[in-house]
Amino acid sequence: MPLSTLAPERPFVAVGDIHGRADLLLDLDRQIAAHCAGWPVVLLGDYIDRGEQSREVLELLMTLSAEGTPPVTCLMGNHERMLLDFLDFPERRGPVWLRNGGLQTLASFGIAPPVGTQADAVALKALRARLADTMGEAMIAWLRARPLFWQSGNIWAVHAGADPDRPIPDQAADTLTWGHADFLRRARPDGHWVAHGHSIVDMPEVRDGRIALDTGAYATGRLTAAAIAAGDVRFFQTGPSR
Results as ranks from 00 to 15, higher is better:
residue 141 A to F: 10
residue 4 S to P: 08
residue 111 I to D: 03
residue 237 Q to S: 08
residue 147 P to M: 07
residue 29 D to F: 12
residue 187 A to F: 07
residue 167 P to M: 13
residue 184 L to R: 06
residue 8 P to T: 14
residue 236 F to D: 02
residue 114 P to S: 04
residue 159 H to G: 06
residue 96 V to T: 09
residue 192 H to E: 15
residue 218 Y to C: 15
residue 149 F to H: 13
residue 13 V to S: 07
residue 230 A to L: 12
residue 234 R to A: 15
residue 158 V to M: 03
residue 169 P to W: 06
residue 111 I to K: 10
residue 106 L to W: 01
residue 108 S to L: 09
residue 94 G to L: 03
residue 168 I to R: 06
residue 68 G to K: 08
residue 241 S to G: 05
residue 127 L to T: 05
residue 116 G to A: 15
residue 33 A to N: 09
residue 6 L to M: 01
residue 53 Q to P: 02
residue 18 I to G: 11
residue 95 P to H: 07
residue 43 L to W: 10
residue 11 P to M: 07
residue 41 V to A: 06
residue 105 T to E: 12
residue 182 D to R: 09
residue 209 G to H: 09
residue 223 L to Q: 06
residue 138 A to I: 07
residue 191 G to L: 11
residue 132 A to M: 09
residue 30 R to F: 08
residue 58 L to Y: 01
residue 140 I to Q: 00
residue 145 A to C: 05
residue 140 I to P: 04
residue 151 Q to S: 07
residue 102 G to A: 09
residue 86 F to D: 08
residue 36 C to R: 02
residue 221 G to E: 08
residue 45 G to I: 00
residue 35 H to N: 10
residue 156 W to E: 03
residue 189 P to D: 09
residue 92 R to V: 06
residue 79 H to S: 03
residue 159 H to W: 02
residue 62 M to E: 12
residue 189 P to N: 13
residue 93 R to W: 12
residue 129 A to H: 01
residue 225 A to D: 10
residue 127 L to C: 02
residue 21 R to Q: 01
residue 177 T to W: 04
residue 202 D to H: 08
residue 150 W to S: 06
residue 58 L to W: 05
residue 114 P to D: 05
residue 153 G to M: 14
residue 20 G to M: 04
residue 119 A to V: 12
residue 199 S to V: 12
residue 24 L to P: 04
residue 2 P to A: 15
residue 191 G to Y: 13
residue 65 S to A: 09
residue 189 P to S: 03
residue 34 A to W: 00
residue 229 A to C: 15
residue 124 L to V: 07
residue 92 R to W: 02
residue 130 R to L: 10
residue 127 L to V: 11
residue 128 R to T: 13
residue 148 L to D: 04
residue 6 L to K: 04
residue 107 A to K: 00
residue 53 Q to F: 14
residue 38 G to V: 13
residue 67 E to K: 12
residue 106 L to T: 02
residue 58 L to G: 05
residue 183 F to S: 01
residue 219 A to Q: 11
residue 113 P to Q: 11
residue 143 L to E: 02
residue 25 L to Y: 01
residue 135 M to R: 13
residue 119 A to P: 00
residue 63 T to V: 03
residue 225 A to R: 07
residue 19 H to D: 04
residue 174 D to E: 15
residue 173 A to I: 11
residue 236 F to Q: 03
residue 176 L to H: 06
